[in-house]
């Protein structure tokens, strides 16, 4: 065991990195989907509205027209859907289109 004073580590400082808590997109059960036909910024093709960008607590929505959502890190809280004045964002179940699992197929003995 190395004693603390012999530790090679130079500093006790952390360095910034995205995804510090892992791929937080895995936390999600519903994903936000933006409909450019309804989004005010996309329709006007200019930086207007931007409420989804302002209120995103995880900084995964870009300040662009249309706004882009980084699904790698989006935790799926749904705040963007709630604050959107034109209902352009809908929350879609993450596993939509996949066949539903049943107990027999999983081979689980319950």
């Amino acid at each position: 065991m190395v004693e603390t004073r012999h530790c090679e580590q130079q500093t006790a400082m952390s360095w910034p990195c995205a995804g510090e808590g892992g791929r937080t997109g895995d936390w999600r059960s519903m994903k936000p989907v933006l409909d450019p036909a309804k989004c005010i910024a996309a329709k006007k093709d200019s930086i207007v509205c931007m409420l989804c960008w302002v209120f995103c607590p995880d900084n995964v929505i870009t300040r662009t027209a249309p706004p882009e959502i980084d699904l790698e890190y989006c935790k799926g809280c749904g705040i963007c859907m709630e604050v959107c004045p034109s209902q352009a964002i809908t929350m879609v179940p993450e596993n939509e289109g996949q066949p539903a699992l049943n107990v027999e197929e999983t081979g689980c003995d319950v």
Binding site: P16, C17, A18, G19, E20, G21, G22, R23, T24, W27, R28, F55, C56, P57, D58, N59, V60, R63, D70, E72, Y73, C74, K75, G76, C77, G78, I79
Partner: peptide, 22 residues
């Protein structure tokens, strides 16, 4: 536009501290 908080942090989904800190 510049951000000082990176995505993929450990805060709960929908945590208001993210909005505040940004």
């Amino acid at each position: 536009e510049q951000e000082f908080m990176l995505p993929g942090n450990r805060a709960c989904a929908g945590c208001s501290i993210g909005i505040i800190f940004r």
